[in-house]
Design a protein around this nucleic acid. Structure first.
Lengths: 249, 249
DNA sequence: AATTTTTTTGCAAATATTTGCAGTATCAAT
DNA sequence: ATTGATACTGCAAATATTTGCAAAAAAATT
């Protein structure tokens, strides 16, 4: 069996199941665990999926685009996007970085809204190309293939002369004590810069990211202005996040 | 058995199976492994399939862009890309702007090449994500939806500190008297900046753009270092482009 | 028809890629 | 803290690729 064939099958399976485990794939494809693992790494480097412990999950942008056509909707995203859109007002400057949730929200912005969206995520830029009244500023820099965003000092520098009204910050984890943290050092610095040039900061997280821990801290929880989840604000999972400075939506 | 006959069979098998292995083909066609491999190489040169380690896969199988963008593989692009790749050397800094031709060339860069590619075309950046050894610098700026590139003074400014070895300049028209010209004013200024920071300039044009006229001049023809078309350099269509400064490939 | 030229083919040595394994490190869940 | 599962590293074997070369086949020329 050809390597490319295998990888194609992995992507197809991922398309239907949304997640795969390395052990299953190894048995299914009749190759060693290691080969599958190496395939997954390659595919992740191309930005086609996201590697997780024990397997892989469908990659953000691609799967959203694909699932849209199939009529499959993730209700968690829908709930979050609805709440998020309430914060977006005409003629504002919106800053959005990478991440599935932000991508989904951007797609849900009404077509007649007049906005400027600043982003380091090329996929988000092309998705917003269908919004005629949205001006898009794409931040330059080194293109980080895994997360499909631009990062680095150039990206930080690009932000120097921008002042945003609202920053939609993506995050990998949010935790009452440890704050917000992600997996990539350089990106955490970029997020800090993005925070510093934004009037208000909002982060939208899906349930599984709540109370997780990641390596590189971006900021304390109290630094946020809004927290959006798919849960009701009074949900017990959010109990630790009560803070007079942060509005939970 | 004739070579053409064999190749026809290979394509048919590829049409049904979407993939073939060299060993299978060798047995099936009763010729040596080497002959089959040479067939595969020829077919790849004609853009009819994609060669991979151990065999070949149908072209559309891999590339989504082929189905949405370029449609059926255009041999003109294949010819141009082959010539273009001769100019690309390891460890060089390549500057590429928008346009279908550049996109196609980028996709054809060998997977093991070590390069830095600077571009204002996000699609090109994501396409190059499949090249593990290619560093990608994405230029920031205003995202121009129609051409799906970044333009504007920010993009020009980003180029200030970059010096490229080779600039693949896309163009809408090339004309012996009028030079190279495109349809968008701001973009023409950007191209002039790109020229100024590049050691060598090459433009790759498909036949239909030769001798056309467009509104915004980028530069004189003699400003180029190389001109690449799908035609033979001595073709009569290129008669007006004889110039001792410009090498026609 | 014979001869030259060109193309095609198969082979072998050198090089490169892919794969599975074993040992070790790390993770995550009790 | 322990433990079973998962991940990473380096290595060696198997497999593929590239290149140049010479024999064979086909095409073109005399």
């Amino acid at each position: 069996m050809l390597k490319e064939e295998r990888q194609q099958i992995i992507l197809e399976k991922l398309g239907t199941d949304k997640k795969v485990t390395l052990v299953d794939l190894g048995q299914m494809l009749n190759v060693s665990y290691d080969s599958v693992r190496r395939d997954i790494i390659e595919l992740e480097d191309r930005g086609l999926l996201k590697k997780v412990h024990g397997g892989a999950i469908a990659h953000s942008y691609l799967s959203i685009k694909a699932s849209k056509g199939l009529g499959i909707v993730n209700t968690e995203f829908v709930t979050i996007a609805k709440k998020a859109l309430k914060l977006i007002e005409n003629h504002k400057i919106i800053l959005m970085d990478g991440g599935t949730t932000n991508f989904y929200i951007a797609e849900q912005i009404p077509k007649n809204m007049e906005l400027t969206v600043v982003t380091n995520n090329p996929h988000l830029a092309t998705a917003l190309a269908e919004h005629p009244k949205v001006d898009i500023i794409l931040l330059g820099g080194s293109f980080y293939k895994r997360y499909q965003i631009t990062i680095g000092s150039k990206t930080v520098q690009d932000l120097e002369h921008i002042h945003a009204d609202l920053y939609f910050m993506g995050t990998n984890s949010i935790n009452p004590e440890l704050g917000l943290a992600i997996r990539h050092y350089e990106e955490s610095l970029l997020k800090q810069k993005m925070m510093s040039i934004s009037r208000k900061i909002v982060t939208c997280v899906i349930e599984e990211k709540i109370n997780r821990e990641e390596n590189y801290k971006v900021c304390d929880f109290s630094r946020l202005d809004y927290l959006i989840t798919s849960l009701h604000p009074s949900d017990s999972l959010l109990a630790g996040f009560k803070n007079k400075n942060v509005e939970i939506l």
